[in-house]
Design a protein around this nucleic acid. Sequence first.
DNA 1: ATGGACCGTTGATCCACGTCAACCACAAAA
DNA 2: TTTTGTGGTTGACGTGGATCAACGGTCCAT
Lengths: 248, 248
Amino acid sequence: MKATVPITVASLKVACSQCNLVELCLPFGMSESEIDRLDELVGARRKIKRQQHLYRAGDPFEAIYAIRAGSFKTDVLLEDGREQVTGFQMTGEMLGLDGISTEAHSCNAIALEDSEVCVIAYSKLEELSRVVEGLQLQFHKVMSREIVRDHGVMTLLGSMRAEERLAAFLLNMSQRFTARGFSPAEFHLRMTREEIGSYLGLKLETVSRAFSKFQDEGLIAVQQKHIRILDITGLKRLIQHPSPSPRP
Amino acid sequence: MKATVPITVASLKVACSQCNLVELCLPFGMSESEIDRLDELVGARRKIKRQQHLYRAGDPFEAIYAIRAGSFKTDVLLEDGREQVTGFQMTGEMLGLDGISTEAHSCNAIALEDSEVCVIAYSKLEELSRVVEGLQLQFHKVMSREIVRDHGVMTLLGSMRAEERLAAFLLNMSQRFTARGFSPAEFHLRMTREEIGSYLGLKLETVSRAFSKFQDEGLIAVQQKHIRILDITGLKRLIQHPSPSPRP
DNA sequence: ATGGACCGTTGATCCACGTCAACCACAAAA
DNA sequence: TTTTGTGGTTGACGTGGATCAACGGTCCAT
């Protein structure tokens, strides 16, 4: 991995206190004086072009990353070549937490569009979180949230049918776009049908068919990657009681 | 929740430094002097009878737990009554990490047999991990390991077929029993077929059939909950290339 | 011992989703 | 403009695992 980052305007620091993502990112819930101290933590920023890796499974773990702009997917690939998307990440979300346990990354992080991340050296994070209580608390919450999120995906994969999964996915995207100040009802997906399918444990054809079905039923309007949610309560209803047999 | 613990022999502290689980539990990798300081962290122990809850989804989060004896399952239940097992935990493993993010537990933890846990007050853990570096590092690794484990389950649920899932489950159990000094090839499952199925995203009948099939093929010997692995490489082969089409 | 829950096994049938295949839309390259 | 490639849609068909159902084994509590 070519680690040398050219000293350009792009790699100049931007204080967390100045960043409009505080509400979503690591600093959330920290006091102003605590956030000021974060500025010594967040080093260079790094730009990643669409389809490029931020890190690969097996890379030595040195830093975690906060997404400043753009979006990513993480995936693992099994020995036999099968690939599974384990998550999609948006601005303000953290990448790389999986690497702490073995000191090597356990998945690949790939940009879905031209993106930019803040690089947070893990050794510095540990050091600083020993003295800044709010940082320690926040960091633990971020990790814990990741665990809870993964449990959510496990229940989705373990107990939902195709259309429920896609409905849950759309509602989740909607909610995350909303939190970032975008429309809850209209957004642009950055990932392909195949990536959505991999994430949801479905084949791309099944994803495509479910999109079409939702459209026929007037729940959404789909045009390629552009989604418009027309009936949010209808989508919610879908995931609440399974299609056949309204409770045994 | 009746929180008062009677002062009995059972609740007396047992130093981590004296515990035979150090290799598996939170203290792993810490220096002796650091482990000694853990003793101020680990408060009362708590006994949980089979089928009883250690905590429930929604309970306020105050402590994490290290399993001293016995085993647990964690599960979440969806609005419509469906239930999903998110994990099985054995001695030395930690419970309750999901509670940090929202300060309330997000799943239920239920003993699969009469069990005992060490109660680790979270506020104390935060405090101590600010001064004991090894504890901080270890705790972060434990959380990260949970994330990696969850990703493993996600790939299992998202891309494996029934028999592969069960094979992976058995190999995982075998490996964990081995790490605890038990036989890699012969062990007693504490959970029902239904719980295994819920964890693996399968119905109990499918689990049962897969067990029978493995037995017919000479891979394992099953007698109710007692499992003997006869051909471990055969099981491993199962999860490496999918049944039909040996790679496209 | 004995009745009753609970748990596990096995068979028959069904259907949701995967598979295979053809075709279309759009974007970048030539 | 045409060409080429990637991503998306749709149809026809097959199948893995769910569902429904019957029965057997084990462990308790009486």
